[in-house]
């Protein structure tokens, strides 16, 4: 494997996107031919509250450099209150990541509604830029876990 420095670094970013909003926004951004950073691998979930910390952790432990979680704005959840639970769970993820000093910046939550194709493109592009700056996942290469 070629060692990756910050310069020749193509990040692996995983996006867990809610079917009812952010995923639709991604669709819209695509069909409006907006420019979107190609490093994001999208996984559709039926609700952002579907995401358990084990999914986040597995994704990081499997080598991802960044994770984006996309859900509906508070008050707009298709299931009424899923994203309120997401918000709490996400806060807990972040808290634990802070404790482990697994750079919390590598995990981002964004509320993006189905009509916000532009915002979707902006969020993905800026998050990708951020991860490029942060460099590769520091866990990679640690053989002890």
């Amino acid at each position: 494997m070629k060692p990756e420095g910050k310069d020749n670094f193509t990040p692996k970013i995983v996006g867990y996107l809610c079917n009812w909003c952010t995923y639709a926004a991604a669709d819209m951004a695509g069909s409006s031919k907006l420019e979107i950073a190609p490093e994001l691998t999208v996984i559709k979930v039926m609700c952002s509250s579907r995401i358990d910390f084990n999914m986040v952790l597995t994704t990081f432990f499997n080598g991802a450099d960044g994770i984006l979680i996309g859900g509906c704005h508070p008050g707009d959840c298709h299931y009424d209150k899923g994203n309120y639970y997401t918000r709490r769970r996400f806060a807990l993820f972040k808290d634990i990541m802070k404790i482990l000093k697994l750079d919390p910046e590598r995990l981002q939550l964004s509320w993006i509604s189905a009509s916000e194709g532009n915002r979707y493109a902006e969020v993905v592009n800026s998050f990708t830029e951020k991860i490029k700056k942060l460099g590769p996942n520091p866990l990679n290469g640690n053989p002890y876990f």
Partner: peptide, 15 residues
């Protein structure tokens, strides 16, 4: 309306 601690941690989700 969440607690201060939670809001602090989810800051930025609104964009």
């Amino acid at each position: 309306e969440e607690t201060k601690g939670i809001n602090e941690l989810v800051k930025g989700a609104e964009g």
